[in-house]
């Protein structure tokens, strides 16, 4: 046995050093890899809940209608009935949380209307569009087209 390692002691020590290196690496791996890693796949399982914990800014139309059912009724039968409230009124989850404290501002009528209805060749032909100079007067859009039920009856 001794003969076998004769003149090789330095190599044995080097191998030993490598062994210690591997051991330390294994130890680090045990200590430092996050617990939930590999729960669902090659990632931290906990990160799913972390991403999901982000707060909501848009409450969703359901929350609006809960209190403002009158507006929802006013929209019945209109083309605008399918539009989410926050499409025009902006993100209002904060208002839903504290209805009295955070009052939403009324949307800027014409700007909002034209965002969708200004004529543009890239828009689908079937979509109602206007060119400002050909369309009516200088009156605000809502004087003829109530925002929640824009059809002129």
């Amino acid at each position: 046995m001794k003969e076998l390692f004769k003149d090789k002691e330095h190599l044995v020590r080097m191998v030993g050093l490598f062994g210690i290196g591997f051991l330390l690496f294994g130890l680090m791996k045990i200590i430092l890899v996050p617990n939930s890693f590999g729960l669902y796949g090659h990632y931290r399982g906990d990160s799913l809940a972390e991403v999901a914990a982000q707060p909501v800014a848009y409450a969703g139309r359901g929350a609006c209608i809960d209190c403002h059912s009158d507006i929802d009724e006013a929209r019945t039968g209109s083309k605008h009935a399918v539009i989410g409230c926050e499409a025009c009124h902006g993100p209002l989850a904060a208002h839903v949380a504290e209805p009295e404290k955070l009052k939403p501002k009324l949307p800027d009528g014409e700007k909002i209307c034209l965002r969708c209805h200004l004529a543009n060749p890239a828009r689908p032909v079937s979509f109602p569009q206007i060119t400002l100079k050909d369309h009516s007067t200088d009156d605000p859009c809502t004087s003829c087209h109530p925002a929640h039920h824009p059809e002129i009856s």
Binding site: A49, E50, A52, A53, Q54, P55, V56, A57, A59, A63, A93, A94, V96, A97, E98, L102
Partner: peptide, 22 residues
């Protein structure tokens, strides 16, 4: 669990309230 982690992560109280509501 979600509510608790959510609250921990969220700094502003209004946002926390919104989350709680939702």
């Amino acid at each position: 669990f979600l509510l608790q982690t959510g609250k921990l992560l969220i700094l502003t109280s209004s946002a926390a309230a919104a989350l709680e509501y939702v």
